[in-house]
Computed example of a mutant assay.
Amino acid sequence: MFMMALPWLLVLELVLYAGCFICGVIAAAWMTQTQGHFDGQCILYGSVLYNVSGESLILEGSSSSICYFVSAIAVCMAIYCFSLILYWIYASCVDENVRRGTGSLNTSIGVCGLLLFFLLVSGCILKIGRDSLCSSVLHNVPSISSCEDGENITWASPYNGNQFYKGLNNTERSLWVSFFFWVLITAVVIIQRRQSSRLKVWGNDEWSRAETEPFLHRPSRA
Rank of each mutant, 00 (worst) to 15 (best):
R193Q: 01
C76W: 04
E211V: 15
A222I: 12
Q195P: 07
S47R: 01
G150Q: 05
F38A: 06
P142T: 05
I22V: 14
I73Y: 03
N140D: 14
C42A: 15
R218L: 07
L9V: 09
M31N: 07
Y68C: 08
M31L: 08
S47G: 00
Y45T: 02
Q163C: 13
F38K: 03
I144W: 05
I153E: 10
N170F: 04
A210R: 05
G129Q: 04
G46H: 04
S145A: 08
C23S: 08
R198T: 05
G54I: 03
Q163W: 12
E151C: 07
T107V: 10
S108H: 11
S143E: 10
L12Y: 02
Q192E: 13
S65H: 02
M3E: 15
E151M: 07
K166L: 13
S135H: 05
G150V: 03
L10C: 11
F164T: 00
S108F: 12
G167L: 01
G103N: 01
V52P: 07
R173N: 04
G110E: 02
Q192H: 11
S104G: 01
I128G: 10
N204A: 14
I185V: 04
G61E: 02
T171A: 03
L12A: 01
N160W: 14
L14Q: 05
S108G: 07
L12N: 00
I79F: 04
C147D: 05
F181N: 06
S64Y: 12
F2H: 12
C124L: 15
V94W: 09
A187D: 08
S146A: 09
I185M: 06
R193G: 01
S64E: 15
R221V: 05
C147V: 06
Q35V: 02
R99H: 01
V52I: 14
N106G: 07
Q41V: 13
R173L: 01
L199Y: 08
D39P: 09
F118H: 14
E148Q: 10
S178N: 12
S157F: 14
T171I: 00
V11K: 12
E172K: 02
L49N: 10
T186D: 09
W88G: 07
R99K: 03
D205I: 11
G203V: 11
Y159M: 14
L44E: 06
I22L: 12
T186G: 11
G40W: 03
S136N: 00
S71W: 04
L59F: 05
I22N: 09
L138M: 12
R193D: 01
S63Y: 11
V141H: 07
G123A: 07
R100M: 15
I85A: 07
S135T: 10
S174I: 03
M1S: 15
